[in-house]
Simulated scan of single mutants.
Amino acid sequence: MRHRWQLFELEDQTWFPHVVRQGMMDVLRFLITGLGIYKPVVPLLRKALRHQNQNHLVDLCSGAGGGILQVWQELERTSGQRHTITLTDKFPNVEAYRYLAAQSGQALTYTPDAVDATAVPEHLEGFRTVFSAFHHFSPATAQAILADAVRQNQGIGIFEGAGKKWYELLLVWLVFPWLILLITPFIRPFKWSRLFFTYLLPLIPLGTVWDGTVSLFRMYTPQHLQQMVNQLNAPHYTWQIGRARHWSGTGVLYLIGFPS
């Protein structure tokens, strides 16, 4: 997949039912964690944090938390140092954030206020991360997210839980529906609405497959990311762009930048 199509995802639409959107994000969080999607990029993130002498992350566009709990666990396990993370979103999923805060012993905290990734409040200092969300933004907005990090002299890491390969579409179409049916009873916090919209009115699996397909088409390639970096006029930053290989054979697209 060399090209990018903007298309649309259901979870981005204002008319899409909030309860179904939250259910889809809960499913993704469970899958990302269970499959260890972002484990391959933890060494890269740890190295960037060490270079910045930074142990605090500000996670932008957190959604339902994605794999951030597992990323935090891996950072602490492999570095032997204490790390903290502030979860933020333009539409905060407070219920999910409270759950993650409890699971992490309050190492993961959150702000209940809306946070625009293109204009992060200055008091939210720390190494910025964006997991599974960068593809949602148009090129101009994506560029503005990077530019805001540079303007405030903050490190930033962009991570997408796929490598933008054609065979990943087969995983979304043929494997994801069955996985969702299997895992839904085990997703926490438990919600009756999640069961209803999975087994009786299957909007969550259908929506997840649609959005998963569109996500692959919307993802930026490493070449796209390099073009964005080139337009930032930030020679004092070190940039790393590429794909990290996951054990399943898929990849994790990443862009990491920090002041040299």
Rank of each mutant, 00 (worst) to 15 (best):
I183M: 01
L181S: 03
E9D: 05
P139Q: 12
R128L: 11
D116S: 03
L182V: 15
G80K: 03
Q227G: 06
T221P: 02
H224Y: 12
N153H: 13
F8K: 01
A234D: 05
R4N: 08
F137W: 04
W247I: 04
K164W: 04
I158T: 08
A244L: 10
L35Y: 10
V58I: 15
Q106L: 06
Q152E: 12
R50M: 11
G251N: 09
L206A: 15
L49K: 02
R21S: 13
P92A: 07
V150K: 01
L35E: 13
F8Y: 11
I145V: 15
V41G: 00
E95F: 12
I183T: 01
V58P: 04
A140P: 00
T88C: 06
G66S: 14
P139A: 11
L146I: 10
L10D: 01
E160W: 02
P205M: 10
D26I: 08
G251A: 09
T184Y: 03
N53S: 07
H56Q: 08
A114H: 03
L216A: 03
Q226N: 11
V42N: 01
L57E: 00
N153Y: 05
E76V: 15
E168K: 03
L44Y: 05
P189C: 04
S248C: 08
V94P: 00
K165R: 15
A102Q: 12
M228R: 02
Q22G: 03
T213I: 02
T198D: 11
L35N: 10
I32H: 09
W239A: 03
V229L: 04
L170R: 07
I32E: 12
F137P: 07
G34V: 04
A114T: 05
R4P: 12
T14I: 12
P92T: 10
T129Q: 04
F127Q: 00
L206T: 11
F197M: 08
R50E: 15
H136W: 13
E95L: 12
G157S: 14
Q227L: 11
R245C: 01
H236S: 15
P235N: 09
Q81N: 13
T118E: 08
L69I: 11
L69Q: 09
D211F: 08
P121N: 08
